[in-house]
């Protein structure tokens, strides 16, 4: 089956910043993304878990976008303006997609 090269960008960011990030992505014409909940983890700020939490301050979400390689810089510039001072991780990986016209 024919596949096409694409870039998969995963942004793990504080839950409180989710709307700001997705709004920035939409403004940059990145209209396709998936928001996933994150149960817990460990990093520079120590170990954490969402179990039993009622506030949004201690939580993280993962925003996953798959874009054409030529759209990568636009996406990263839009995302970085939002996430730069905040706790989180931004990673980019190569991937293959089946229906290129959708990205």
């Amino acid at each position: 089956m024919k596949t096409h090269p694409a870039k998969r960008v995963e942004i793990t960011i504080e839950e409180i910043m989710e709307t700001r990030l997705t709004t920035a992505l939409l403004k940059a014409d990145v209209t396709g993304f998936t928001v996933l909940p994150v149960k817990g983890g460990s990093g520079r700020s120590g170990h954490w878990t969402r179990a039993g939490q009622v506030g949004r301050a201690g939580g993280m979400v993962s925003v996953v976008c798959i874009v054409r390689p030529d759209r990568l810089d636009t996406l990263l510039e839009a995302a970085f303006a939002v996430v730069e001072p905040h706790i989180g991780v931004v990673s980019v990986t190569d991937c293959e997609v089946l229906r290129a016209e959708r990205f």
Binding site: E14, I16, M17, S45, V54, G55, R56, A57, G58, P85
Partner: peptide, 20 residues
């Protein structure tokens, strides 16, 4: 609940583990 969330947005450089 309310203040930690506001602090994460307004003062992201502040250490959340201290105030929480």
């Amino acid at each position: 609940i309310a203040v930690p969330a506001a602090m994460r947005v307004a003062l992201p450089e502040a250490n959340p583990s201290i105030y929480l």
